[in-house]
């Protein structure tokens, strides 16, 4: 089943045409990777899905983005509801300068959950789902800034999971991590996909090949090819896709 469908999606930053006629369909409970050289528009595409591009001056979008059949680009979309449903993990782990506990309940608290027992349950569940519970359960009140980079990134995922999203957008989530930590985060992504639709932007082709079910290849704002990861990496239909994944440019 398709979770997100884009139809004739175009985006401009002032004069710069950043996304050109993107047609794509992102499946529920699967991991979709978007690959392509720097500046090809892959992060921009990701940020269309939770409307984070809205904060850029002079941005203009055109076309349709349907999430569960609802167009999120029209003026009636409630951004708070949208972003609760479509969450984002950023390139640099970015916990708030608060305790581990307060980081996780941050969104939930503001959205109106105040009961301590309820929040305790959310913290435990969220930390368990990112496999941090055993490590951190005894120091929930210490500062999140003291954690290792990998722990911070896991915590950021836990903070996101706590607001119960349905889609996880990951913008190069491993680019600041070492190979071991990257492998463990990828393992985590595989576990999470049974509950969430995950879209990951990466410039690491091996990562896309290892972790994703579907892959889209972008170049200069166009979605050149989109399909099963196994097919894209073994039998690309487009010459440019082949050139990119065989390392001829990028």
């Amino acid at each position: 089943m398709s979770k997100i469908v884009t139809k004739k999606l175009n985006l401009w930053y002032s004069q710069f045409h950043a996304l050109k006629d993107v047609h794509a369909s992102f499946e529920d409970k699967r991991i979709t990777a978007i690959i392509g050289p720097s500046g090809c528009g892959k992060s921009t595409l990701l940020r269309v899905f939770n409307r984070m591009n809205d904060f850029v001056d002079g941005v203009r979008t055109d076309g349709e983005v349907l999430i569960d059949g609802e167009d999120i680009l029209n003026g009636r979309t409630d951004l708070v509801t949208l972003r609760k449903k479509v969450g984002m993990v950023f390139q640099r782990p970015n916990p708030f300068p608060l305790s581990i506990y307060e980081n996780i309940v941050f969104g939930k608290k503001i959205h109106g959950e105040t009961k301590r027992e309820q929040l305790d349950i959310i913290v435990e569940k969220s930390l368990k789902s990112v496999l941090l519970w055993d490590e951190l359960k005894d120091k929930l009140n210490s500062s999140a800034l003291l954690l290792s980079l990998e722990q911070k990134q896991r915590l950021c995922i836990a903070r996101l999971i706590a607001v119960q999203p349905e889609v996880l957008l990951m913008d190069e989530p491993c680019s600041t991590l070492d190979p071991q930590a990257t492998a463990r985060i990828e393992e985590l992504m595989r576990e999470l996909k049974s509950n969430y639709s995950i879209i990951i932007v990466t410039h690491n082709m091996q990562q896309a090949a290892r972790v994703s079910d579907d892959t889209g290849f972008m170049l200069l704002g166009e979605l050149i090819e989109f399909g099963k990861t196994s097919e894209i990496f073994t039998a690309p239909k487009d010459r440019r896709t082949e050139e990119y994944i065989t390392g001829r440019y990028g």
Binding site: F55, V80, L82, M88, F90, F96, F106
Partner: peptide, 23 residues
């Protein structure tokens, strides 16, 4: 205050004013 704090907060479905107040 780092822009990333605002960005994360907004991405969690927290409104702009709540972000200013809480973060």
């Amino acid at each position: 205050v780092p822009a990333s704090f605002r960005e994360v907060s907004l991405s969690l479905g927290v409104s702009k004013w709540q972000t200013i107040r809480n973060i």
